[in-house]
């Protein structure tokens, strides 16, 4: 009963994180196109754009931040796995609980500060400093979402570790366990 509920929570988080990660990946071709267009416009048309610089930086930031949770789901974040790979599953769960707690603490601060910067950006109408001067607030909203999803994914991973520690059974099967 409880396990079913927990499984549902985990699967929901997995789904949202995966969809966001895939959505962010669709920004990659757009990013490359924007930079290529700036080169084309400057060199062949003799007309540098005023927007490509900021648009490319925003897209870069969106891809980089929003992909964080999905990279965690795929266990793609870099870790030093020398000891990690040589200990038992239970020990590994303890390791995860410690390091993910630290990660969540860091991400909570990012979320909190981004929320504050969002409010500031709205209050003072903060913009980028270039001539085009696009507004900044959306970037902080994006960071709130990105760090929120990352927290959710880490929380879900910790839930699995806790479940295993207490029951000795995997909450969700076919969990990739190579720590990679």
């Amino acid at each position: 009963m409880v396990a079913t509920f927990l499984r549902g929570v985990c699967r929901s988080i997995d789904l949202v994180v995966m969809l966001t990660g895939k959505a962010a990946s669709y920004l990659m071709p757009i990013l490359a196109f924007v930079v290529a267009f700036e080169v084309f416009s400057r060199y062949f048309l003799g007309k540098p754009t005023i927007w490509a610089f900021d648009v490319s930086l925003f897209l870069f930031g969106y891809v980089a931040a929003l992909g964080g949770a999905y990279a965690q789901q795929k266990r793609a974040h870099i870790n030093v796995d020398i000891l990690y790979l040589s200990v038992s599953h239970k020990t590994r769960c303890v390791f995860n609980l410690l390091s993910f707690s630290l990660g969540i603490f860091f991400l909570l601060i990012i979320l909190h500060m981004s929320l504050g910067k969002y409010e500031e950006a709205i209050e003072f109408d903060y913009r980028r400093q270039g001539e085009w001067a696009p507004p900044m607030y959306h970037f902080w909203v994006m960071l709130v979402i990105a760090s929120g999803l990352f927290i959710a994914q880490l929380g879900r991973d910790m839930l699995l570790d806790l479940y295993y520690l207490f029951t000795g059974q995997a909450l969700i099967e076919q969990e990739s366990d190579d720590g990679n």
């Binding site: 870099i78 860091f106 601060i109």
Partner: peptide, 19 residues
């Protein structure tokens, strides 16, 4: 310590600095 625990490197560095 946190590298040995296998923590994600970026989160560990940021988290350590904040703690």
């Amino acid at each position: 310590v946190f590298f040995a625990l296998g923590a994600p490197v970026g989160l560990a560095l940021g988290g350590i600095a904040m703690v």
